[in-house]
Design a protein around this nucleic acid. Structure first.
Lengths: 222, 222
DNA sequence: GCATATTTGTCCGTATGTATA
DNA sequence: CTATACATACGGACAAATATG
């Protein structure tokens, strides 16, 4: 999925595949933020040696999902209000920059249309968990509009960190539901080529989402 | 300097400090692009064990400075034309986004003024090496305008990769010299608060620089 | 195309220092 | 303050893949 695999062949070393698995567990909320990850325990849990696990930890700390505390071990990061503010600041810059490159017929734009419709459907069915997943995929596709592998990988890391924030919050419902309409509207604007309107629509989305996340975060972590 | 150190204390583990040292060697051009880094040799060269060195490699591959080839080892990346295009695409988005936040009196803006003047001086003295260093510092300060630690660290990685490209080229002179004037002009526009003019000035810089780097790259690597 | 040497990928055991109960 | 637990780092071992003659 992401770009932590080796070049050329899609082969992943043991460290890379375990990193991918732990990454999935992290964004699924299986590990609590702030929790310590013991080398001994995790190595046993995944059936790998401690040396290999330390390579895994180096990968995941580089992705801002784990953090080292010297001589104390690695811990799951617990993004605070400042982190959320920063993440949304970067999102704003990256996503506004990306949709400048939107041109009709771009594969990513087609995908955005599909995802917007899937989001409407999932929202209608009340499947909030899927609404959240689709929503993030939608914004990921938005960044793909500008055909920049580096920007996409940066954005992936941002989204992973943001998922970690979501994992701290208790309600999956109202965190994504209000935005499916905005997404559909945004796609329409991009398809019609009205970039300035799309930008302000995006700004509205980001501001609204940021405030909701901040409020939920301050309302207390579960 | 960069953010690969552990949280809380500024202490760096052995892997982190060796990674920083190798990183310096890489951007100084001490290792040739495409060169293979033998685990045995490099471990001996730096007086560390293979296990620790593999952690170092994980850090540096995460920073796009090295790349794994499965069962063949790690190699210094050799950015090609596509990489340069992508780097400048991301630079454009990030830097244009960053200067939107420029307000008079921002510490980063003060620093940009200082660096612009230092660049003029170094250019007058014909010290091209220092002109290049100052130029990159100038653009780094530009990104600091938006007070986003995440965007800054992303930009640092981009610049490190770009330095790797410079290391492939033979002339350090004409790659930076023509831009010192543009830098000074850009600072003036930002200080006067004329963001739109600053943006077009920045666009002119990036386009010019990108073309020069691409031309030098196609003219042949040393 | 084959046999051999080299190197990676991964594991284990262990010594040392640091933090914590 | 001592003792225990753990992170840090090292060296050696071995199979598998790769490079070399």
């Amino acid at each position: 999925m992401t770009n932590e695999m080796s070049i050329e062949t899609g082969y992943r070393s043991l460290a890379e595949s375990v990193a991918a698995r732990i990454r999935e567990l992290l964004i699924a909320g299986e590990f609590a933020p702030g929790q310590k990850l013991s080398e001994h325990q995790i190595a046993a849990q995944f059936g790998i040696s401690r040396n290999t696990l330390r390579e895994v930890f180096r990968l995941l700390t580089s992705q801002r999902l784990l953090a080292y505390m010297p001589n104390r071990g690695v811990f799951v990061v617990s993004p605070d209000e400042a982190a959320v503010l920063d993440i949304y600041r970067v999102r704003s810059i990256i996503q506004k920059g990306a949709i400048q490159a939107a041109n009709k017929g771009h594969p990513a734009l087609v995908r955005m249309r599909q995802l917007a419709e899937q989001g409407e459907k999932a929202s209608f069915d009340g499947n909030w968990r899927q609404v959240g997943t689709i929503n993030l995929e939608f914004h990921r596709a938005m960044v793909e509009l500008c055909d920049s592998p580096r920007l996409c990988s940066v954005f992936d890391l941002l989204l992973a960190e943001l998922r970690l924030v979501f994992g701290q919050l208790d309600d999956g419902a109202h965190l994504h539901e209000p935005y499916v309409g905005l997404n559909t509207g945004l796609v329409g604007l991009l398809e019609s080529g009205d970039i300035p309107a799309a930008v302000s629509q995006l700004e509205a989305y980001l501001l609204k989402s940021e405030r909701a996340v901040l409020a939920a975060l301050q309302r207390g972590r579960r």
